[in-house]
């Protein structure tokens, strides 16, 4: 079975226990306002342009297509760039090829394993399940997910993977819709399933200034954690580098919050509720 990935990163230190390789699957149903990985959003291959070394000859622009007023690079652009700055993001790969590639480093991944991230890895669930089946018993597998996917599929994946890195962003559904484009109902459903499944997992909260770092939201999330008996979270404070990759796609990064506001680390609330945490 074929899947679409956009990167394989060896020795990714913050994607689960031990020494790991992370595979990034392309495509995501969410549109988080703070998304730092716009390459991961589209389900299609895209041509991206590395901005450094560009001599502004415009060879790439001259042969680009304009779709809905947006610049889309073409194969000719790749050929014509004298500096070799254009490349495809997104590679079709079969589960056999991918697993073979990952297992080549099996000897080095004993302490950790393989993490599937994205995009949203559950968005290519058939491919993901196929890979998990092939890796079962050979290597530890982890899924880094927003939790957004139909519950049937989610249950299957929970049955196959060894570990989950589960994002909880916003407890309030209205705000969740506003900032990510989707409702959190199915996410919370899946979360409580995961928590009761006995599978190992860790919860991650992206701390976005004025959005997810508000006392209200943190209290909301803490409630969810308590209901599920979770007493440890990992915090990912927003960093102003989030927009770095947008220009590669000729896109503009326009978060609908003020990114210059300092992130509030909710130490007090977490401590008060006996939730241990680590800042990544």
């Amino acid at each position: 079975m074929q899947g679409l990935i956009f990167s394989i990163e060896e020795f990714s230190v913050y994607d689960g226990p031990g020494i790991r390789t992370t595979v990034f699957l392309k495509g995501c149903p969410l549109r988080c306002s703070w998304c730092h990985n716009p390459e991961g959003q589209s389900y299609n291959k895209e041509i991206v342009r590395s901005p450094n070394g560009c001599i502004n000859c415009n060879n790439c622009i001259n042969v680009a297509d304009i779709v809905d007023g947006k610049t889309v690079f073409t194969d000719d652009g790749i050929k014509n760039c004298p500096m070799g700055l254009l490349r495809y993001s997104g590679e079709n790969i079969s589960s056999e090829q991918l697993c073979e590639k990952l297992l080549k480093n099996q000897n080095m991944l004993q302490s950790g394993g393989v993490t599937f991230s994205g995009g949203e890895p559950l968005a290519q669930s058939d491919f993901l399940l196929d890979c998990l089946t092939k890796l079962k018993g050979k290597i530890h597998t982890a899924i880094q997910t927003s939790g957004y996917c139909d519950t049937q599929t989610f249950k299957k994946v929970v049955g196959m993977a060894d570990y989950f890195l589960f994002d909880l962003k916003l407890a309030d559904d209205r705000l969740h819709r506003k900032y990510t484009g989707v409702s959190n109902a199915v996410i919370l459903n899946n979360f409580s399933f995961l928590a009761s499944s006995g599978r190992e997992f860790v919860v991650r909260i992206p701390l976005i200034p004025t959005v997810t770092d508000s006392d209200e939201n943190i209290c909301g999330i803490v409630n969810l954690l308590k209901q599920s008996g979770v007493n440890y979270v990992e915090l990912l404070p927003y960093n102003q580098m989030a927009g770095a990759k947008y220009k590669m796609l000729c896109r503009e990064y326009r978060p609908d919050f003020d990114e210059r506001v300092a992130v509030k680390v909710p130490e007090r609330i977490l401590r008060k509720n006996n939730v241990a945490f680590k800042i990544l």
Binding site: Y14, N52, P206, L236, A244
Partner: peptide, 19 residues
């Protein structure tokens, strides 16, 4: 490592590199 993610330094915009 930029923020919970990694990228090739070369692929970051100059302003981000400066950062």
């Amino acid at each position: 490592r930029v923020w919970g993610w990694s990228g090739y330094f070369n692929e970051l915009d100059k302003e981000y590199q400066n950062h």
